[in-house]
């Protein structure tokens, strides 16, 4: 495993921890999109089907279990926890996330490396992950005041995606036959979605101002 991949996994892990920290200690999910969290739970559930069939490493299995466990517990917190659910901004979080799922299913059925149930599900999870952040970004645009933890959560997610691209570039030059168009293109699309957010994040950081996105 190269340094970019490890750093990518760690920023991904930290992003989830920051979010859980916010929800668990402050008992608030203000500014967090339930739609995006539900999509992530679906992404992990469909991607990690191989957890029982293919053993890669202890690291791999542990991380998969952490991402599955954390994503479903975040959804549980926002939907069911009696204090946390009160802070959920239902009126603002209106993105029709179900409409993202069907195109991803169709695309996965049409464009995949192998037409098997596991492979199509895996490909579906890549396509869905690419667009899963959209409800969160839309909610962010509507929320006038973005708190620090929410800003850091999205920044860490974007950092994770960027580091994975560096990881692919590194692997392309160091490993033989390492060409994965589906992973790369969906990963690139996903990272580009963060470009706008990054711009305003660094801008507010540089000027030492509170993060605010233009309406």
């Amino acid at each position: 495993m190269n340094i970019f991949r490890l750093a990518g996994d760690m920023t991904h892990l930290f992003s989830v921890l920051v979010l859980l920290l916010k929800i668990h200690t402050i008992k608030s999910c203000a500014g967090i999109s339930l739609k995006t969290q539900e999509l992530y739970a679906l992404v992990f559930a469909t991607r990690y089907l191989d957890i029982f069939t293919d053993y890669i490493s202890l690291y791999n299995t542990c991380m998969k279990l952490i991402f599955l466990g954390s994503s479903f517990s975040i959804v549980w917190y926002i939907r069911r926890h009696k204090i946390v659910r009160r802070s959920y901004d239902k009126e603002q979080d209106t993105f029709r996330h179900h409409f993202l799922i069907l195109p991803c299913i169709i695309l996965a059925l049409l464009i995949n490396e192998k037409f098997t149930v596991k492979e199509v599900m895996w490909t579906f999870s890549l396509y869905l992950e690419a667009v899963a952040i959209l409800p969160q970004l839309v909610l962010l645009q509507r929320t006038r005041n973005i708190d620090n933890l929410t800003g850091q959560y999205i920044f860490l997610l974007g950092a994770y995606r960027s580091l994975y691209i560096l990881n692919w570039i590194y692997r392309y030059f160091t490993e033989q036959h390492y060409v994965h168009w589906i992973t790369w293109i969906s990963g690139l699309v996903q990272t580009l979605l963060y470009a706008d957010f990054f711009y305003y994040y660094f801008h507010s950081w540089k000027n030492n101002e509170k993060l605010q996105l233009p309406a």
């Binding site: 991949r5 996994d9 991904h12 191989d50 293919d54 890669i56 490493s57 791999n60 991380m63 998969k64 991402f67 490396e113 192998k114 895996w122 994975y164 990881n167 692997r171 490993e175 036959h177 390492y178 994965h180 992973t183």
Partner: peptide
Amino acid sequence: DNQSPAKDEL
């Protein structure tokens, strides 16, 4: 080879 390298990623 049915285990493509990308599958070792998360």
